[in-house]
Simulated assay, not measured.
Amino acid sequence: MTRDPEPSGFAQLADFDGARDAAMPQDRLRAIRRAAEGLRERLLDAPPVRFARSFDLLRIPYPAWFAFTGVYSQQLIKPHMVHLLARTVVVQYDDFEGRLRTLLFTPADFEAGNETPYFKRLAEQTPKFLHKAIAPVYRTVPQALASCGIAPEQVDYITYDHLHTQDLRRWLGSGATPGLLPNARLLVHRQELASVQGLMPVQAEWYCPHGLDGIPAERIVAFDGSIQLGRGLALVHTPGHTEGNHSLVYRTGDGLRVSSENGVAADSWAPLRSRHNGIRRYAQATGAEVILNGNTQESSNDQYLSMVLEKTLAGSSAAHGFSNVVPSAECTPHWLFPGAPASFLWGETSFGTPVKA
Results as ranks from 00 to 15, higher is better:
residue 98 G to K: 03
residue 84 L to F: 08
residue 91 V to K: 00
residue 99 R to H: 08
residue 92 Q to D: 03
residue 55 F to P: 01
residue 33 R to W: 08
residue 104 L to G: 03
residue 103 L to F: 15
residue 68 F to K: 00
residue 58 L to Q: 10
residue 42 R to P: 10
residue 102 T to Y: 10
residue 58 L to W: 14
residue 39 L to S: 04
residue 64 A to H: 00
residue 67 A to I: 10
residue 65 W to D: 12
residue 44 L to G: 02
residue 97 E to I: 02
residue 35 A to T: 11
residue 59 R to L: 04
residue 44 L to Y: 01
residue 53 R to A: 13
residue 60 I to A: 08
residue 100 L to C: 11
residue 83 H to C: 14
residue 63 P to E: 05
residue 49 V to P: 05
residue 92 Q to R: 04
residue 84 L to S: 04
residue 45 D to L: 13
residue 75 Q to G: 00
residue 35 A to D: 10
residue 105 F to E: 09
residue 105 F to T: 07
residue 78 K to Y: 00
residue 99 R to A: 09
residue 42 R to W: 07
residue 41 E to M: 11
residue 107 P to V: 12
residue 79 P to H: 06
residue 54 S to M: 03
residue 53 R to M: 13
residue 53 R to L: 09
residue 95 D to Y: 07
residue 88 T to V: 14
residue 103 L to Y: 11
residue 43 L to E: 06
residue 71 V to Q: 01
residue 91 V to M: 08
residue 105 F to M: 12
residue 54 S to V: 08
residue 51 F to K: 05
residue 45 D to M: 02
residue 48 P to A: 06
residue 87 R to G: 04
residue 98 G to W: 11
residue 54 S to A: 09
residue 101 R to S: 09
residue 43 L to Q: 06
residue 36 A to P: 12
residue 34 R to I: 12
residue 92 Q to T: 13
residue 45 D to V: 00
residue 86 A to Q: 14
residue 44 L to I: 08
residue 100 L to Q: 05
residue 83 H to A: 15
residue 77 I to G: 01
residue 81 M to R: 04
residue 65 W to F: 15
residue 98 G to M: 05
residue 46 A to G: 04
residue 71 V to I: 13
residue 99 R to V: 03
residue 75 Q to P: 00
residue 75 Q to L: 09
residue 92 Q to E: 09
residue 62 Y to T: 15
residue 105 F to S: 11
residue 58 L to S: 05
residue 54 S to Q: 03
residue 56 D to P: 07
residue 77 I to R: 00
residue 77 I to W: 05
residue 73 S to V: 10
residue 102 T to R: 05
residue 95 D to G: 07
residue 60 I to F: 12
residue 32 I to D: 02
residue 49 V to F: 10
residue 73 S to D: 15
residue 76 L to Q: 03
residue 51 F to C: 09
residue 97 E to F: 00
residue 84 L to H: 06
residue 52 A to F: 09
residue 84 L to C: 07
residue 81 M to K: 03
residue 32 I to Q: 05
residue 91 V to E: 07
residue 49 V to A: 06
residue 81 M to F: 13
residue 97 E to Q: 03
residue 92 Q to I: 05
residue 71 V to N: 01
residue 91 V to R: 04
residue 61 P to K: 02
residue 78 K to L: 02
residue 96 F to A: 01
residue 98 G to F: 05
residue 35 A to E: 09
residue 33 R to F: 12
residue 90 V to T: 11
residue 72 Y to M: 00
residue 63 P to L: 13
residue 41 E to A: 10
residue 90 V to C: 09
residue 66 F to P: 02
residue 62 Y to W: 13
residue 79 P to G: 10
residue 84 L to D: 02
residue 52 A to L: 06
residue 71 V to M: 03
residue 89 V to S: 11
